[in-house]
Design a binder for these strands. Sequence first.
DNA 1: ACCGTCACGGAGAGCGCTCTCCCTCAGGTC
DNA 2: GACCTGAGGGAGAGCGCTCTCCGTGACGGT
Lengths: 373, 373
Amino acid sequence: MTDALRSAGAAPTLEDVARAAGVSRATVSRVINGVRNVDPTIQEAVREAVSVTGYTPNRAARSLVTRRTDAVALVVSGTGVEPAEGADGADGEPHTADGGEPPEGAGEGSFTARVFADPFFGRVVTGVVDYLRPRGIHPVLMFAESAWARDEVVAYLRQGSADGALIVSTHAEDPLPALVAEAGLPAVLYARPTRPARISYVDLAHRDGARLAAEHLLARGCRRIATISGPLDVPAGQDRLAGFQETMARHGHPYIPVAEGGFTQESGEAAMERLLTEHPGLDGVFAGNDLMATGACHVLRDHGRKVPEDVAVIGFDDSGAAAACRPPLTTVRQPVEDMAAEMARLLLDRLAEPDRPATSVIFEPTLVVRASA
Amino acid sequence: MTDALRSAGAAPTLEDVARAAGVSRATVSRVINGVRNVDPTIQEAVREAVSVTGYTPNRAARSLVTRRTDAVALVVSGTGVEPAEGADGADGEPHTADGGEPPEGAGEGSFTARVFADPFFGRVVTGVVDYLRPRGIHPVLMFAESAWARDEVVAYLRQGSADGALIVSTHAEDPLPALVAEAGLPAVLYARPTRPARISYVDLAHRDGARLAAEHLLARGCRRIATISGPLDVPAGQDRLAGFQETMARHGHPYIPVAEGGFTQESGEAAMERLLTEHPGLDGVFAGNDLMATGACHVLRDHGRKVPEDVAVIGFDDSGAAAACRPPLTTVRQPVEDMAAEMARLLLDRLAEPDRPATSVIFEPTLVVRASA
DNA sequence: ACCGTCACGGAGAGCGCTCTCCCTCAGGTC
DNA sequence: GACCTGAGGGAGAGCGCTCTCCGTGACGGT
């Protein structure tokens, strides 16, 4: 009758299974977790009892003793407001409200909305999830765009609600990596932290990617080349620009017109307009990412320039936007999914061996030639 | 000295705080959870002790007793393979490697990758997160594209790893809603389930949206109108088509050429090509979503048709793709973020009052007029 | 026949928290 | 003064699990 009550009421516990199988709790636990040797006959009996009772281990109880949750925080970090001084007007970071209170915000302008407007994050999620899933780890989505949100992330980890964090930072000067590192919480970053910290990360050799783009443009015969850079307060933006300028200089083009964008299509359009006004004769453009390259293509066409005949355009990332663009974009591929998976791998390694020192893995970009250049 | 050891070693517990404040565990708990009256002086002492010890409540321990995790599963459900055309095979479950094994898959073709290729999901996440965050609830991202994955989701919920589920189904004949409903697990769906189930959902009045599009095209003077439908095994695809045909019929256009697409840009391109071959004279197109509309615009331009002068194009969703398209798309807006937030609200309501009956909330679409029609 | 040495199962002590009791004490009330 | 009341605080029993011990019995070497 206890069984009857059980099946009707609360979820079955280890105790119930043990009783049903005629063994002790410990044995059931051993069978379930596949640890130590258990007599095959008993194993069978336990499995039988498990399926009869419809038992599912209670995660909270397990976590309480193992100190593991099999969950990791996947946090998108950035700044909602936090002035990002340095760069002046073109900071590309709209000023939203950012109090000490949890954000009640929603809609178009919210941080979360902006984040997912970029296909980049979807790719990160894909890479992370595809790696974590077969390993039984679940990602908890978090955003850390304000001081309040950052504290929440740290608290979340300290509470042991997640075993570690995968942090994708959209901004330099992001305080989160330092916070997490100081607290000694296991974490891995996407992109090198601005200030060095004892924390692992994966990154791309942005300069090499920009070099690839420059060389391709040059090899194509372009001679009046300009670039639409990403935001200059983001390392990726800086590095791509620097690498591009560097290579161009080495090939005898010490001066390259630059228009700063904000990694969005609209900002790419605006930047292209500016470039076109000041340098109507340009015949090649390297954009800091595909979204901006797409915007550039639109503007070029609006101005009667054919891509690639009149102006060659190269993007960066090889995101979905690159293939969707007309013409399809020649672009520098960033293997985001692989990088995200590696990030997850580094974190899991670290969790397995807490003493393991921080490491970094740098990926090499490749040129994907399509129609735009 | 105990304190010294504490601060160096393990995380402080309630016990530590209690000792520091000179009260009992129960009192500290009361202060932290703000339940019952506690003397203001003692409250202050406890808060002080909390900050001195750097205490953070352990979530697992709390969950163990409260039976709440303050986490919800945000699950994207669907089937491994997209096409499912013909829609005859009725089973809706295309045959993928759908064994008992966890998927090790990754990259371009993986379910997760395809999911995030569509801006739609980013918007759902945005809506959900923006609603949940201020309420201290965290979303755990899950995918349920195979029998294995579905079982995992159910197990996850049964384990009490999450308090409930928000399910976004990409496919009709998706078995997950039924599984979850049967198990009596709290859940809310995005889009009405194919087979009615005792489960709440939010949805859009797709037919009304399609009517808006039809009327706009007609009012514009289009007379040779065709449509690119979404996949016909998805309710949203069916309803939008049906609503469109219905309205057109009512206005004296009983026959409307239809090309079925798969909600992707490429499928929109292919469908447009087909339409153009068979009906070169068409002057208006309604696409089942913005991605396909964007593809249609590309193809139309490739064929020398000006949008909207020669052919008017209307999309559906008002996703980021609509504004990014050249020309910007006139489209039927689906307030995804609001709908997602509502979905979260319904779930939280249900968790607060478990007996509350299942409800549904239907949103009305609106027409957003831009340049393409 | 004896003593390791395994292989295997059970007992039971927690993990850190919440929450129900129960106790105490101040302030009425009759 | 006896009694009630309600506010405020403590004790302690678990929540369901893991894991360290320890006990037992089978086996083999000497």
